[in-house]
Design a protein around this nucleic acid. Structure first.
Length: 253
DNA sequence: CACACTTATTGCCGACCCGA
DNA sequence: TCGGGTCGGCAATAAGTGTG
């Protein structure tokens, strides 16, 4: 454990545990999240499959804010305050809260938090190496299982889906991934399903694509249990015939 | 083993904010 | 103004640790 002095408070200190450091690793990957997602990641690090209480997540944020390791912005939306790691906490620069993509990033973090609780490691997808490639919003790594995750809050036009599906087809053929999950709201779920059915490229990957409506219109994912379709990494490993790419002793993130 | 003490976690309550 | 949602203070509880 590490003792961190609190600026401006004479004598006040905060303990930073290994678990807290794992939280900062997660924040360095997803950059920004809401309090609901913090509930799930704290649960993952505690080794339980239910989120910790809202109160617990709030107090964790308050404690780390006092230590100067996270910052918060109360924007009044559902899902709680937005939370991000400071440079001192994560070594990455502050996210821009007013960028249009922030809502999307928070939604990706919500997905990452659930996958973490289900036992998956989480990575950012690599930038496409060649023209026509496509970068997913995240990669969930199980034991011998690679799942590309796409968070879809705004429906796209059909030609765009055609290009993305073709890129996924190539990646599946190359063995870079085992499946693709589209996490949507109601509107985009309809668009993705339609595109998968109408486009030849869509039909060719459809058996390996899961389309789930998890978000409300504003991109908030609120729940108290893991979705039934989300198989835990451990259960998935027992059904997978592939050789593990990730040892069971690998770190969570 | 019994007991005191610490730490982590939770539920409850009131305060506050915001939109209908 | 009302209701829903979030946040922080507080007390209760569970689990872990040290001591006689």
């Amino acid at each position: 454990m590490l003792l961190v002095g609190v600026d401006g408070w004479s004598g006040r200190t905060v303990w930073v545990t290994d678990r807290d450091r794992s939280m900062f690793e997660w924040f360095s990957i997803v950059r920004i999240a809401d309090v609901q997602s913090v509930r799930w990641v704290l649960a993952a690090l505690n080794g339980v499959d239910r989120p910790v209480s809202v109160r617990r997540a709030q107090s964790w944020c308050a404690r780390m804010e006092a230590a100067g390791l996270v910052e918060r912005a109360q924007l009044g939306g559902r899902g709680g305050a937005l939370v991000w790691g400071t440079y001192a906490g994560t070594g990455v620069t502050r996210p821009n809260l007013h960028r249009q993509t922030t809502r999307h990033e928070v939604a990706v973090a919500a997905a990452s938090a659930r996958y973490a609780t289900a036992g998956y490691a989480w990575q950012r997808d690599e930038k496409p190496a060649h023209v026509g490639g496509h970068q997913a919003d995240g990669v969930a790594l199980g034991f011998g299982w690679v799942e590309l995750v796409e968070v879809e809050l705004t429906p796209k036009r059909l030609p765009r889906y055609a290009a993305i599906f073709a890129a996924y087809r190539r990646r599946l053929d190359l063995g870079e991934a085992d499946s693709i999950s589209y996490l949507c709201n109601k509107e985009s779920e309809r668009a993705v399903r339609a595109a998968l059915g109408e486009l030849p490229a869509g039909r060719s990957i459809a058996p390996q694509v899961g389309v789930r409506s998890m978000y409300d219109r504003t991109g908030i994912w609120v729940d108290e249990t893991l979705p039934t379709w989300m198989m835990t990494a451990r259960d998935r490993a027992q059904r997978s015939t592939r050789r593990p790419r990730r040892s069971s002793s690998a770190a969570l993130f």
